[in-house]
């Protein structure tokens, strides 16, 4: 099953993840002013939220990664060596 989590500390409360999610996984915690995962089981792993999140605060696990044919693998491998 796909896992999805928001790093709460990093959420700025923009609610873009709520706007972009096709399966309505997220909800807004109005008191904290931060987004939260409400329906994790509905996540289809499209990663739209992860790409759009300004903080990079949303992480997925166990999703099917599609390798874009136009991605430069040589460069992509370099980022694995970032401290």
């Amino acid at each position: 099953m796909i896992g999805i989590a928001i790093h709460e500390e990093s959420c700025r409360g923009c609610s873009m993840c709520i706007d972009v999610c096709p399966t309505f996984v997220f909800g807004m915690d109005e008191t904290a002013g931060k987004a939260s995962v409400k329906e994790a089981a509905d996540c289809v792993g499209c990663l739209s939220c992860a790409y759009l999140c300004p903080s990079g605060a949303i992480t997925h696990t166990d999703y099917h990664a599609v390798m874009n044919f136009y991605r430069d693998l040589d460069f992509s491998q370099r980022v694995a060596r970032f401290l």
């Binding site: 790093h7 500390e9 990093s10 700025r12 409360g13 923009c14 609610s15 002013g33 300004p54 903080s55 990079g56 605060a57 970032f82 401290l83």
Partner: peptide
């Protein structure tokens, strides 16, 4: 990073952006 090298451990890294530690509120 240096301590991880000295102690032979994996350093903590993060893919988060500058917004992750900014304290401003993003509002529409």
């Amino acid at each position: 990073g240096l301590l991880a090298l000295v102690e032979g451990k994996t350093p903590r890294t993060s893919d988060e952006s500058v917004c992750g530690r900014c304290r401003r509120k993003m509002t529409k």
